[in-house]
Design a protein around this nucleic acid. Structure first.
Ligand SMILES: [Mn+2]
Ligand SMILES: [Mn+2]
Ligand SMILES: [Zn+2]
Ligand SMILES: [Zn+2]
Lengths: 125, 125
DNA sequence: TATATAATTGTAATGGTTACATCTTGGTAA
DNA sequence: TTACCAAGATGTAACCATTACAATTATATA
């Protein structure tokens, strides 16, 4: 039950939520939910390739139900994580001869459109 | 004194060492060295753009004195982190209109040449 | 119902990182 | 030299996301 709700929530959002975000979001709906369950479920989802684990130079991991190849932009001011398209397949690389690439990760950082024109945004890394 | 040695070591290696690696490596040379100093020094080096902080889907941060634009390949078996060249400037992206990109990070994962032919390599993530 | 297995929970430990107060070093002026 | 100050370095404790582990609850099957 819990894991279905977790997958549903993850599939229906583009927020790239953390464990804490998922937990506090679903707690009203599942009052018996424990954080351990969230961790365990996300581990299973990642193993089953139904979700993707993201490390965005933060102390918390983020999760993404969008498993397709795409890049992530993290705004240093508001902390939001945005998706963007990038053609990683046609990216030219040198020095990877003999390497078996299994996973590609593209992470950009900077200021999102809203924070660029908003001086009040607090810097969050 | 400590911070000079730390920068020298970082500049002279391509290992992308962790704090623990830097600390244990320099301890024989600087018996009074503390891990706090390593952390603080690396923070300063990153701020001064003399080093780069890398989060490679591990629990430990890694550091790189090579500040130029390049990609990183992490072997899932032996854990080693390799450099490779990638032309990120000419990478085509869609969905970043209005975004101010300040930093680009490219991380690949898989098996390095040595581990591909060596079945004995232990899986480390 | 009885039994086994899967799912969930609670608590404690782990470990990298940060905060903070203290101590040491190096330079500068009187 | 001596006094003084600021930068550098150290040690300890707290912080906090994550993991380990044992216990409990729900679900399925015979
Ligand atoms: Mn995404
Ligand atoms: Mn590098
Ligand atoms: Zn923003
Ligand atoms: Zn390897």
């Amino acid at each position: 039950m819990a894991r279905i709700k977790i997958l549903e929530y993850l599939t229906g959002t583009t927020d790239h939520p953390t464990v804490e975000m998922i937990y506090s979001r679903l707690l009203p709906e599942i009052p018996t939910l424990s954080k351990t369950t969230v961790y365990k479920t996300l581990e299973l989802l990642v193993e089953a390739n139904l979700a993707r684990l993201l490390h965005m130079d933060e102390n918390e991991a983020r999760f993404d139900a969008n498993v397709s190849d795409h890049g992530h932009f993290r705004c240093s001011r508001c902390g939001k994580v945005y998706d963007f398209e990038a053609d990683l397949d046609s990216l030219e690389t040198k020095g990877l001869e003999g390497f078996a690439v299994a996973e590609k990760n593209l992470i950009f950082k900077g200021s999102c459109p809203r924070c660029r024109t908003d001086r009040s945004g607090r810097i969050r890394g």
